[in-house]
Simulated scan of single mutants.
Amino acid sequence: MIPIQNLYYLLCYAWNRLPEQEQWLTSEATSFHRPLELLGRVLLMGTRRLLRQGLRQAYAEREEELGELRGRVLLETSLSRDLLRRGRAVCTYDELGPDTPFLRVVLGALAQVSRARQVSASLRQELRAVMRLFPADLPPTPLSSHALRAVRRTRPVGHEALLLNVCELLHSSALPEPAADGRTRFMDFRRDERLMAQLFEAFVRNFYRLEQRRFRVLSETISWQAAAEEPGDLSMLPAMITDTTLEAPDRKIILDTKYYRAALRPRYDRQRLISPHLYQLYAYLQNQKKPPSQHLEGILLYPAATREIDLRYTLGGHPVRVVTLDLNQPWPGIAADLLKLIE
């Protein structure tokens, strides 16, 4: 299980933020015992910063029964209520204010975490206190896939993007069945291999993007070196998209991350590599188009769980390394191991 402090670093890089940008939390992370406490504290401190900077305002559409005309009159609704005879009408108009989908979602996240028994009573009180700093008429939006997608489409950046990432992770770790008292229950998302695989992949890619300058770092779509009698048949081939590609004029590394409990599986009383992972990396290497002067290699990277390994092969003429990364060691060791991997 990844220690909470290392989980904090993993999330920072997965969300494309240097830990130094959130230095206020680095020393606190060791005191948390559950991932939910970490997320709740990030949500709290991020919201406080948002309030200090001033809430971003936007135009929101209002619909209201008024005694004077404003904006657009909803004639059918007004007639059905017999309002015009009384000198009133239902109008829709745009009003500038802090009522935005983003702030409603943040309020919804604050409300859910503030009711969770899995966080300390002091943190719940702090979350409720910061909620009272929002306008009283701003309603919270409960976290849902639909609400989060709507906010994501607005393409928030900077600090708002960080808070949206927290909200999305909270939603992913919320259990579908509430507690008996109606409170939202959250699981330890470190046990969700699918979710952790996504975070681990983004963590590794963004770590290299932020912490080294030799390679250009990207996720690359590789074209099949294939032909077909019917050109349209080529579109039926599966897409090849790398987790992380590190590219320099003289060297190119295809790095595939796999978040599995073990890098080896028992077969016929022997431990062997997971064949689909190796086949996938081999396909990436064999379908590369590169300059003759560029050295091409592949890396399969696993988190170290039951056993640490460091295996080196030459496959199809390309060096391939299968290696584990110990996420239980102190953070400086993790960072050093990642940088050493691409030396």
Rank of each mutant, 00 (worst) to 15 (best):
Y208R: 06
Y279K: 09
R191W: 08
T242Q: 05
I309V: 14
P238N: 04
N165F: 02
N328I: 01
A248F: 10
E22C: 04
E297T: 01
E193R: 11
V204T: 11
L103K: 06
P292V: 03
P176C: 04
P291A: 15
L84I: 13
L338M: 11
E95V: 07
L110V: 03
L55P: 05
T77I: 03
E177D: 09
L38K: 03
N206A: 11
L44T: 06
V105E: 04
T77S: 10
T30F: 06
F203G: 06
A116T: 14
Y259M: 02
L296V: 07
F102S: 02
P303H: 05
L148C: 04
R115G: 05
A111K: 15
M196H: 08
A89P: 00
R205C: 04
R85F: 13
A116Q: 01
A180L: 13
L246N: 05
Y282D: 03
G67L: 10
R56Q: 14
I4S: 09
T221N: 10
R191S: 08
L338S: 05
R56P: 00
E247Q: 08
Y282Q: 12
L311Y: 12
H277N: 15
A179S: 13
L107Q: 09
P332T: 05
P101I: 07
P238C: 00
H159P: 04
W24E: 13
L162S: 09
V320P: 00
E201T: 14
L175R: 15
R190T: 06
L195P: 03
V320Y: 03
T257V: 04
R128M: 12
P291L: 08
